[in-house]
Amino acid sequence: MPGYKGHLTGRLIFWGLCLAGLFGFGIYQPDPITALVLLLIVLLGALFPDTDTDSKGQNLFYGCLVILDLALMIKGKFKWAAILGFCALLPAIGHHRGWTHTWWAMLIIPLPIIILPMMFYKLSLPDVLPFYLAAVFGYLSHLVLDRKF
Rank of each mutant, 00 (worst) to 15 (best):
L125W: 09
Y132D: 08
S124N: 04
L143N: 02
F149H: 07
G16E: 04
Y139M: 11
L60P: 01
F14W: 10
L143V: 06
V42R: 11
G85A: 09
A35F: 04
T102Q: 15
D31L: 06
Q58R: 09
T53R: 15
Y62P: 08
I41F: 08
L70Y: 13
S55K: 00
F78I: 05
H95V: 14
L17E: 04
Y28W: 12
G10Q: 00
I108V: 15
I74K: 14
T9I: 13
H7Y: 10
A92M: 10
T53D: 15
G63K: 13
I114M: 15
I109T: 08
R97P: 01
I13Y: 13
I83R: 05
A88T: 03
L39K: 03
K77I: 03
L90K: 02
I115H: 10
G6A: 02
K122W: 12
G3M: 04
V42A: 11
L60A: 09
L43P: 01
L8M: 09
N59R: 14
Q29H: 08
F48Y: 14
Y62F: 15
S55R: 06
P2R: 12
V66K: 09
M73W: 04
L60E: 01
I13E: 05
Y28N: 07
G98T: 00
L129N: 08
F149G: 13
M1C: 07
K56L: 07
D50I: 03
T9Y: 09
T53M: 15
T100N: 09
L84D: 01
C18P: 04
S55P: 11
T9D: 10
L133A: 10
P117C: 11
G24K: 12
P126N: 09
F61S: 01
I13A: 14
L111E: 08
I115N: 03
F61A: 03
V136I: 14
S55M: 12
P130K: 04
I114V: 12
P2C: 04
L12Q: 00
L36Q: 07
W104Q: 03
F14N: 02
L38W: 01
K75L: 10
H96T: 07
C18G: 07
L36R: 15
Y4R: 07
F78W: 06
A35K: 01
I13K: 03
S55N: 09
S141A: 05
S124W: 07
M1I: 04
H101Y: 06
L129E: 12
V144Q: 02
F131H: 13
I93M: 12
L65K: 03
I115F: 13
R97V: 10
A82M: 11
G16D: 07
F120D: 12
L90I: 14
A20Y: 14
H101P: 05
T53Q: 15
L65F: 12
T51L: 03
I114C: 06
G76T: 10
Y28K: 05
F23G: 10
A88G: 02
K122T: 13
I13M: 09
A88K: 03
L143I: 08
Q29N: 11
V128K: 09
W15I: 02
P32C: 14
M106V: 07
F137S: 01
L40K: 11
G138S: 12
L72M: 15
N59V: 11
Y4F: 15
M119P: 05
F48P: 01
L36E: 02
F137A: 09
P30W: 06
G98C: 05
A134H: 06
P32G: 11
T34E: 12
G21H: 01
L133N: 01
G63P: 00
V66P: 04
F149A: 07
V144A: 12
P91N: 00
